[in-house]
């Protein structure tokens, strides 16, 4: 009991430390560092959303780029083509992400396990196909350029703080969610669907709701990304994006909230720095995939947990 309390206190301290760091550090580093930190946050939101499905509920989606991309394209189209405001684009992005997620979820939830992977993968391919070829709407190969942020968020630092607030909100919402009854049900579904069903839970509905939340927040990440990069192209929606999101979650630790953030941070920093040291960045990233899968299936957080258990054991002994 006391241990749990302390652990909670530790958690609060850690979160506070990250928050303080994240809000103060931009004032002391150069603009590029702020940009990189901003990327960490945006991909962090995507990874968190994916983790809700993958880590907490045990639904591995191989196509989260689709929902991210829907949010991104909806934002870009609203902003660049229709001249919509930031708020309007935000609304439309979330609605678009919700609609696309709902349709995909209806199809994908008919399958489970590896077939679920396959179907989410196929659906993401379809969305990519639309982004790539629905020229009049998406600009096709050209993508959509010239998406400007509203004046008050024009400079890098302000937008960073905006993203930080959003990301913190998402984190807060998710931590309330996973610690609620609903969250316990999620874990229950992960552990044994049939048992949950026997206990009278509507497993399908739970899964659908989780899928929806995950998709909508991925769309939110897409929205943030477009205003960050002021450009969107089919490569944002491609397979590799889905895989990278999965890697971030796996690297950090699925089934935890700190894990995805940690994973996305490491990934983004590597992505922005590895080619400064070597021409062979493809091999480096490829090896990270292989090593994470083989040696750190529970990610860094899992590794830490293991370490902690060991330390605890020696303490007791």
């Amino acid at each position: 009991m006391r241990g749990e309390l302390l652990a909670t206190r530790g958690r609060v301290i850690a979160i506070a430390a990250v928050l303080v760091f994240a809000s103060v550090s931009p004032l002391f580093v150069d603009e590029f560092s702020v940009l990189v930190l901003n990327q960490c946050l945006i991909w962090g939101v995507l990874a968190l959303s994916l983790d809700l499905m993958l880590g907490y509920t045990g639904m591995a989606s191989l196509g989260h780029a689709a929902y991210f991309g829907t949010g991104a394209y909806a934002t870009a189209i609203m902003s660049a083509t229709y001249g919509a405001s930031f708020g309007e684009a935000f609304l439309v992005a979330l609605i678009a992400a919700a609609v696309v997620t709902a349709i995909c979820a209806l199809v994908a939830l008919r399958a489970s396990d590896v077939y679920f992977l396959m179907i989410t993968f196929a659906l993401a391919m379809l969305i990519w196909g639309l982004a790539y070829r629905w020229d009049s709407m998406t600009g096709g190969e050209n993508g959509i350029a010239g998406i400007d942020r509203p004046l008050i968020m024009e400079d890098t630092i302000t937008y960073y703080y905006f993203t930080l607030v959003v990301a913190a909100g998402v984190f807060l919402f998710f931590s309330v969610l996973v610690h609620s009854c609903f969250g316990k049900t999620m874990v229950g579904i992960r552990e044994s669907e049939s048992r949950m069903r026997a206990l009278g839970y509507n497993v399908w509905l739970h899964k659908f709701i989780i899928y929806m939340i995950s998709g909508i927040f991925s769309g939110l990440a897409g929205f943030l990304w477009v205003y960050y990069n002021s450009y969107v192209a089919p490569t944002d929606v491609e397979l590799v994006t889905s895989f990278n999101a999965l890697l971030m979650v796996s690297l950090g630790g699925p089934g935890t909230l700190a894990g995805p953030l940690l994973g996305s941070t490491i990934f983004v920093i590597l992505d922005n720095s590895v080619n400064m040291f070597t021409e062979r960045s493809l091999t480096v990233v490829g090896c990270i995939y292989i090593v994470v899968v083989l040696f750190a299936p529970e990610g860094i957080m899992g590794f830490i947990k293991q370490l902690r258990t060991k330390v605890g054991e020696t303490d007791n002994g």
Binding site: F243, L247, Y289, I290, V293
Partner: peptide, 19 residues
């Protein structure tokens, strides 16, 4: 480990492309 297998094949894609 369905997911692990997919992820590792992606790792090999990158390594082979570089090779």
């Amino acid at each position: 480990n369905d997911l692990g297998q997919v992820l590792i094949t992606m790792g090999f894609v990158l390594v082979l492309q570089d090779a």
